[in-house]
Amino acid sequence: ETFPLDVLVNTAAEDLPRGVDPSRKENFLSDEDFKAVFGMTRSAFANLPLWKQQNLKKEKGLF
């Protein structure tokens, strides 16, 4: 299941849709939104070091 970017960005855990893991908001973006937000594919993002993934998520309001 995916959700629009505005539902996930800068949203407190208690305000997220049911079933969304607040530590993994990026997994609930569509592939198109994911690429638009991070400028890379999911596989490229997954290959980044964890610290870099976290920094990007913070920068984009998805942490």
Rank of each mutant, 00 (worst) to 15 (best):
K35D: 12
T11M: 12
N27S: 09
L50F: 12
F34A: 00
V9M: 12
D15C: 15
Q54T: 13
M40T: 01
S30M: 03
F28E: 06
A44N: 09
R24V: 09
T2V: 11
L62A: 03
Q54V: 15
L16C: 07
L16K: 03
A46F: 12
D31S: 05
K52I: 13
P22Q: 07
F3M: 05
F38L: 07
E32V: 10
G61K: 04
F3G: 04
R42Q: 05
F38Q: 00
A13I: 13
T41I: 08
N47E: 13
V9T: 09
S23C: 15
K58G: 05
A12Y: 06
F28K: 03
A44H: 10
T2Y: 15
D31E: 12
R18D: 14
L56M: 11
G19K: 08
L56R: 01
R18P: 15
F3A: 03
Q53G: 00
L8Y: 02
D21L: 04
A46M: 12
M40P: 00
F45R: 00
A36R: 12
V20L: 08
P17T: 04
P49E: 07
L29N: 01
E26P: 03
P4T: 08
E14L: 07
T2I: 10
R18M: 14
E59H: 07
V20Y: 05
F28L: 07
P49W: 01
A12I: 09
L8S: 03
L8K: 03
E14T: 09
K58L: 08
V9G: 04
P49S: 07
R18E: 15
D15N: 12
P22N: 05
A12C: 14
W51N: 08
G61R: 03
A44G: 07
F45C: 00
N27M: 15
D21C: 09
G61L: 06
S30I: 02
E59A: 12
L5A: 05
M40H: 01
F63W: 14
W51K: 08
D15Q: 10
F3S: 03
A13C: 15
K57A: 05
Q53H: 00
P49A: 06
F28I: 03
K25P: 08
F63H: 15
A44L: 09
F38R: 00
E1S: 13
R24A: 10
N47C: 15
E14V: 12
N47K: 15
V9N: 07
F3E: 03
W51G: 07
R24H: 15
L5D: 03
F34Q: 00
L8P: 03
R42A: 03
D31T: 06
L29H: 01
S43H: 14
E1Q: 15
L5E: 02
P4K: 03
L5K: 06
L56C: 04
S43L: 14
V37W: 02
V7M: 14
A36D: 10
D33Q: 06
S30H: 05
R42M: 04
D33M: 05
K52D: 12
K57T: 02
A13T: 14
N47M: 14
N55K: 14
L29W: 04
T11R: 09
L56A: 04
R18S: 15
R24N: 09
P17D: 05
A46T: 10
R18F: 14
N47I: 12
F34D: 00
E59N: 07
A44D: 12
R42V: 02
E26Q: 06
L48E: 02
R24M: 11
K57H: 01
W51Q: 08
F63R: 06
L5P: 07
A13F: 11
D15E: 10
P17W: 03
S30L: 02
K25D: 04
P17K: 04
A13H: 11
L29D: 01
P22I: 08
G19C: 11
E14H: 11
W51T: 09
V20T: 04
E1V: 15
A46G: 11
A44M: 12
